[in-house]
């Protein structure tokens, strides 16, 4: 029995080693805030809840908001 026998392996899968939660968490908190803000600008920025003055952003992405299914007017 040779050593080579023990080296026989199943094909490597592309299943990944999990990334430690502690590594992900800071990214997840910061990035999801930024990304949710982006969704907000497309989905809701409007008169009542306006973060930046006026309704330019609201009107600019108007069709996208309707077609993505957000309430608009």
């Amino acid at each position: 029995m040779s050593n080579a026998a023990f080296a026989t392996t199943a094909p490597a899968t592309s299943r990944a080693e999990p990334i430690p939660v502690g590594t992900i968490l800071p990214w997840a908190v910061f990035a999801s805030l930024m990304l949710l803000l982006a969704v907000y600008f497309v989905g809701a920025e409007e008169g009542a809840t306006s973060l930046i003055g006026g309704s330019y952003v609201h009107e600019f992405v108007h069709d996208g908001r309707h077609l993505l299914g957000f309430p608009c007017h």
Binding site: A16, P18, I19, W27, L36, A38, D63, G64
Partner: peptide, 26 residues
């Protein structure tokens, strides 16, 4: 305007999916 809205929304959803993927992968 429509293009901008969909690109921004797409980038946001893609980013959120990547974060969820980071937790779930493996």
């Amino acid at each position: 305007g429509l293009l901008t809205g969909l690109l921004v929304y797409g980038a946001a959803i893609g980013g959120l999916l990547a974060l969820a993927f980071a937790f779930a992968d493996g």
